[in-house]
Structures are given as C-alpha cells and as structure tokens.
C-alpha cells in the first residue's frame, strides 16, 4: 500500500498556519506508516526544520515563494520530498554534528539527520529537491 501526502504553500517567515497543516497531514502519514507517536513527532520536527531552511536560506526570508512537500510510504520506507525554487543548497550537506549546548543556532540538521537516515539533494531545472528517507524497519524501533 502507498499513502500519499501533498502540501503546497508559499514562504512566509511570520506565518504559523503551515505548521498546523503539515502537522495534521504528516502525522497522519507517519501513523499510517506504522510509526509510534514519538517517532512520528521526530519526523514532523525534521520536516519543519527542512522547511525552515528553505524559508530562511533558500528564499532568504522572502514571502510568497513556492514550497512543495510530497510524502509517500511503502512497505519499507517513508519518503518526504521538499521542493523550492530558491538559492541552491551549499554542498556538501551538513552532517548534523551536534551544536554546542549553549549555542542559539545550528541544531536543525541534527534534528533532520536524527529522523531520516538517508538524505539526498539535487538541483533540477532551477528547483531544489531535498529527499528525506526513513527505513520503516528502523522507524518502528526508535524515536
């Protein structure tokens, strides 16, 4: 069985509404994939961080720019794709090394990497595509 999530919205650094929409749709997908609440919340946190990065870095805080999120789960994995038309992501991708505990930034990629064991990025036709994949066998046993 394959479940599908699709959310399209526009960037706005001061908008709170997309969080609620993403929470509703993504938590439903994650639970359908068999994730327990803590693991589903870890997935939600990671996708929120990825969207934050698009708004803050790819679009540099500019409003009204397109963000597309697509999610699927199959037997073996949960996959989330995030697309935007902002600045290309610098490579290599951050490793998610833990930030200093007293730092006031630098935790986003740690949260992303903790929830998704496979992360890939490509730039296709002036579009950024970040793909986050979580094997479901692992997902069922940890948060």
């Amino acid at each position: 069985m394959t479940a599908i999530l699709r959310i399209d919205f526009e960037s706005d650094p001061e908008d709170l509404t997309w969080y609620a929409l993403l929470e509703k749709e993504l938590m439903t997908l994650a639970r359908t994939a068999g994730l327990e609440d803590m693991a589903a919340m870890a997935v939600l946190c990671a996708v929120v961080e990825a969207v934050n990065n698009i708004i803050e870095h790819a679009y540099e805080g500019e409003k009204g720019k397109p963000i597309k999120i697509a999610g699927t789960h199959e037997e073996t994995s949960l996959k989330i794709e995030l697309r935007d038309r902002g600045k290309p992501m610098p490579l290599p991708l951050p490793t998610g090394t833990p930030a200093d505990v007293m730092a006031t930034s630098g935790r986003g990629w740690q949260i992303i990497r903790a929830a998704f064991t496979q992360v890939s990025y490509e730039r296709v036709n002036d579009e950024n595509l970040l793909t986050l994949t979580r094997p479901l066998a692992d997902a069922l046993s940890d948060a």
């Binding site: 929470e23 946190c45 929120v48 934050n52 007293m102 730092a103 935790r107």
Partner: peptide
C-alpha cells in the same frame, strides 16, 4: 506542544 530549533534557541537565549 511543538517546538523547533528556533524555539530551542529562545530557551537557550
């Protein structure tokens, strides 16, 4: 109910 890394930064600050 929900906090992201920006929220964590608020508490650290």
């Amino acid at each position: 109910e929900f906090m992201d890394s920006s929220g964590l930064a608020v508490v650290v600050a």
